[in-house]
Structure formats: structure tokens, C-alpha cells
Write a protein that binds this DNA or RNA. Structure first.
Lengths: 122, 122
DNA sequence: ACTCCCCCTTACGAAAAGGTAAGTACCGCA
DNA sequence: TGCGGTACTTACCTTTTCGTAAGGGGGAGT
């Protein structure tokens, strides 16, 4: 058993949803895939400044396992792997909408810095 | 400065919102305070089965610092401390609504166990 | 021949988060 | 006298998460 028992019994819906989005880059991955529909590994890598290859694959694998992203491998050389959101991934993104708006308000309130100004609308 | 630099520069609103709710018990604290309006420390403790006193105070302090909960100490003996949501706490809870609904759906989909059946509506 | 690109995997280690247990100070109750 | 209740704090340890660095296997560009 290589996997830790991450998906424990949940206390409420919030619990279950947070389990799936908690992870340093998962929110951004969701955002990238929602914005571009389909992205390859190296495109995601470039889209998430600072992510390591290890964390990116790790997060993508977990999100695939959670039924949020679809992974399609094209048997070519050089290899081409395309990621996209599943239906559940899209509905999750919609459910995150109000939370994102709240976060934007919070950033504005306390004048926190934002790294990429092109993404503050999310 | 005893506090670690938790509140980093954020990449997007989701980032900022998740920073505030990530923590093993914060979702539940939000839920409890929203449901009961006002709760004392020991009431919250009893309402969150399995939480330790350390984690409860730690989370409450962070949430206070983040402007989500209001802490009122009554100078009595024995001491009485009452916690309630601030306006920002209430709006955050509303923003979490769709996410909670998504989580409930997810639990239902994969038939995960739920600890407290009285709370699955959240 | 050399390097770069692609999509990873593995090993190692630091940092953060969380849990356990004990101590604090005061009071009411038996 | 001793226990329980209130609201914590502190020290210590384990678990989880994240990052860094290296390798791999094949092909295409220079």
C-alpha cells in the first residue's frame, strides 16, 4: 500500500470538499484547466510558477484518483500527456466561485500583495 | 514575532480563502459558530469530537487574527469566554455553502462514511 | 557528440501541521 | 482533602507535506 489513507470518513461536506482541494497547487491547477480546457504537463508546469515536477505529478495523480481531472496519454515520441477537467472537476470549480470571490474581497480589504495580477479575478 | 509568515502573497482569491479555512477543524468551528451564534470554549470542545484543547485554542486564535471570529472574555471566576462569528466569518460561511453542497454530493457518490449523520446537510 | 525536450520516478531532507501529556490558577462541592 | 470544571500554555514527539536534486529513455535539433 503506497497510498496513505487520505480519504477518511468525513464529518461534513466542507470536510470532503476541502480534502480534495487542499494541496499547495490544486486550486491553481483547477483554475488553469478550467481556463484552457486542455493542457499538457509542460504547459501546466509553465503556468504554475514555482511548482516542481514532483508536486505537479503528485497533485495531478491525486486529482485523477479523486475524479476531478482526466488524463490522456498519447503513445507518441516525444510523449504527449493531456489533462482536462472531468464533469466533477467542473462542478467543483463552480462551487469554488463564491469562495474565490470572498478571497478576492479579503485580499482587497487587507491590501495583501498578489503575485500574478492577471489572475485576481479568480 | 511568534507567528510564522502564514499569510503570504496570494496568487488568487481561492488561495486567500483556502489559507483561512485550511486547518483540520476550522470548517467545523465555522459551522458550530454559525449554528449556535455564540459558543463557549468548552461547548465548542464538546461539539468537535476528537479535537484537543491545544488545536482548538490555536485555531480559534488564528481565526480571530483573520477577523473571522470574535472572542469575548468575561472576567469572572470560573472564567467564561464566548466565541461568535464576525461579519466576515458569516460571509465566509455563506461562500462555503456551494462547496459544502458539492462535498455532500461527493460523499454520496462514493459512499464514504460520515461520522456525524446529523451534520451531513452542511 | 552534445544538448535539449518530454514526462515522469526515486531518494533524501526540511518544514509545517497535528497529537499527547502535563502544568497553571482559581473556585465550588463533597 | 481531594476532585472536577474553566480556559488555556508549554514541551515534546510523530505524521504529513513540500522542496531539491538526480536519473531515465528516446528522439530531434546543431
Amino acid at each position: 500500500m503506497a497510498k496513505a489513507p487520505r480519504r477518511g470518513p468525513y464529518i461534513c461536506g466542507i470536510d470532503a470538499a476541502l480534502d480534495v482541494v487542499s494541496g499547495k497547487w490544486k486550486g491553481l491547477i483547477l483554475w488553469e484547466l478550467d481556463a484552457h480546457r486542455v493542457r499538457r504537463f509542460s504547459e501546466l508546469r509553465r503556468g504554475l510558477p514555482g511548482v516542481s515536477e514532483k508536486m505537479l505529478t503528485q497533485h495531478l495523480r491525486e486529482m485523477e484518483e479523486d475524479g476531478l481531472v482526466h488524463r490522456e496519454v498519447h503513445a507518441e515520441v516525444p510523449p504527449r500527456v493531456e489533462y482536462s477537467l472531468t464533469e466533477h472537476g467542473r462542478t467543483l470549480n463552480q462551487a469554488l466561485g463564491p469562495l474565490g470571490a470572498w478571497g478576492v474581497e479579503r485580499i482587497r480589504r487587507e491590501g495583501s500583495e498578489v503575485v500574478d495580477t492577471a489572475k485576481t479575478s479568480h
